[in-house]
Design a protein around this nucleic acid. Structure first.
Lengths: 343, 343
DNA sequence: CTGTTAGCGCGTTCAG
DNA sequence: CTGAACGCGCTAACAG
């Protein structure tokens, strides 16, 4: 008579039928009882709930999904699991979903179009309700197309097709805000050392910086110095800058790593920060900014917000509310000792 | 007559039935044809395959899973999405699975037992074939218990129950190997500056270091200096160490961040690295070691391998091959300029 | 070789 | 208030 109890040991888990049998009711009644539907006698419901707990019954979402046509699962297709960008975005998305009952299927395509197609197929086969596609740089990436059976939102890297939905950082504005912070401190001779000009992020931040200077009837000191996103480049560029005899009272670095190199070189040359030269970076990457001496002022691109917004827009799209177009997420200047003494 | 074609526009995606209808065969035949089973006429198969492609049919893995009792999905339950540890582990797992056709459902419990239970329930409801549980430190964590309907493997943080399957870094050996590297360079006066003594990782690495010294009939210079995992602590501890008049020819730092602080302080004091003092860290964290000057020798704990091994053991367990017990993954010393000139 | 039947676990009618 | 019957998309066993 303990067939229901034995279900646990069977290969398949406990099913609703087992619970119904244990409670002495039909599957239909058990279903209603557990899902809080009407027309179930309180006593019956209690019996069912108790049986379900005793057997530690876990409803099979797959079976449910196959009926409902909705799985409560979204696919996160990233190209940059290694990198610093996809993780906070992923967290923001997890955050936004976590409140509800969405689960996240994660795939890393590693910049490989073939692998991406492969994973896409797998995700669609698992009937995800939607997709978030995370790029590894802010340069536009190929669209997955409009023939998808589910909505997609692109995060960090926008889709090249601007009728797709994308959420990206506002790099131009970030460059402007950073520069305005320096100007607001009375600095006027600002140099800009940044990453490769092949990166949209580097170009856009530089554009924003130049714009801010222009608005103040000023100009950047010398040309924008493009290099790599490394401390080494920050050191080299700073040495070449100061070695050339240029006079600067602020250096805007294109990333926190570059900024660390800048700080390093300045210290070697006996230049005081922030008294003689103010320094700031981009990304507000904790281990970099906190470890710097003095601590580094930086522009936070709010990656987590990007992830959260992407998730929210995806939820909207799934609910049928169309959300095309590129959305820019604003950045935040975080002031520390490298621009304001004692901050 | 184009009902099959219209399926795309229907709310539910294209089903096998649509394909069968379009190819003029029964569902069963279509199934066999697409799955490469025997007893299907080549011509029929061709018709079916063609129809399936024309309709861009994607088999519903959910329906398949409900039959097979296997979903081809594993749950990755992490507590440290923020941190540096879970990500490489996740990548290793993604790697190991990616070769096959496993998909990864990712959840972040954020060190919250309630949230963990909640996510666990969700994962089991989705009928994952197994679980990988990633901790945020190497301290043992509570077991999920043995009543789970699917196997679980613990990564980084071992389960407190040692009849569970765990994969962890070998921190004692890491401490030993690091110290032996310093000794092999002829250094004999080694000091150790590391993280909080509340961390098993800090204690174990220190133990390994002491063991290596003892084996060489030597002792660490002064007591192990416990602090925080930060550059700031590395600087402070170095200054206090040298200020006390202690003579050292090597400093073993408990992490790359601490090591960066050590390097910084040494430079300020005019101590040459590696000539006067050799410095090394743990974790081999790219942005930290490459940016250092000179570049930082460090112990790579092979997190990715940990993830890969966890995934492999999980696959084994799913296949019924039992794999209890704690597995230690070996580390690797990566030599750079901070211990060997010009390396 | 092909089609029919059965059934996976569940939710939802619709009679009783 | 309860239960029998049907269907979701798919595969396996068996007839034809």
């Amino acid at each position: 008579m303990s067939t229901a109890e034995d279900a646990v040991t069977r290969r398949r888990g406990v099913t609703l039928r087992d619970v119904a049998r244990a409670a002495g009711v039909s599957v239909a009644t058990a279903s209603k009882a557990l899902n809080g539907r009407d027309n179930v006698h309180p006593d019956t419901r209690r019996r069912v709930v108790e049986a379900s707990e005793r057997l530690s019954f876990t409803p099979n979402s797959l079976a449910r999904a196959i009926l409902a046509g909705q799985t409560g699962t979204v696919g996160l297709l990233t190209n940059d699991l290694e990198g610093r960008f996809s993780l906070p975005i992923l967290m923001g998305a997890e955050d936004a979903f976590g409140a509800g009952q969405m689960s996240v299927l994660l795939c890393d395509a590693r910049e490989d179009a073939i692998r991406e197609q492969y994973h896409l197929k797998a995700l669609l086969g698992r009937r995800v309700d939607g997709l978030i596609v995370v790029g590894s740089s802010t340069d536009p990436r190929p669209s997955l197309g409009h023939a998808l059976p589910v909505p997609a939102v692109y995060a960090y890297a926008p889709s090249a097709d601007d009728t797709d939905a994308s959420v990206v950082p506002d790099n131009v504005n970030a460059g402007t805000q950073a520069t305005q912070h320096l100007l607001s401190l009375g600095r006027t001779r600002v140099a800009h050392i940044t990453g490769p000009s092949t990166y949209a992020a580097a170009r856009e931040r530089a554009t924003g910086a130049q714009k801010a200077m222009l608005d103040a009837n000023l100009e950047l000191v010398g040309p924008v110095r493009h290099g790599s996103w490394t401390e080494t480049w920050g050191r080299a560029a700073t040495n070449s800058l100061l070695g050339s005899g240029a006079e600067v009272d602020a250096i805007l670095a294109g990333s926190d790593q570059i900024a660390r190199g800048v700080l390093d070189a300045l210290r070697d040359r006996g230049v005081a920060v922030p008294d003689d030269v103010a320094v700031m970076g981009f990304d507000n990457w904790d281990p970099m900014v906190d470890g710097a001496q003095p601590m580094l002022t930086s522009v936070d691109m709010n990656f987590k917000t990007i992830g959260r917004r992407a998730a929210q827009r995806l939820v909207d799209a799934i609910a049928g509310r169309s959300t095309a177009g590129v959305e820019q997420v604003e950045c935040t200047v975080v002031v520390r000792g490298s621009t304001v003494k004692g901050a």
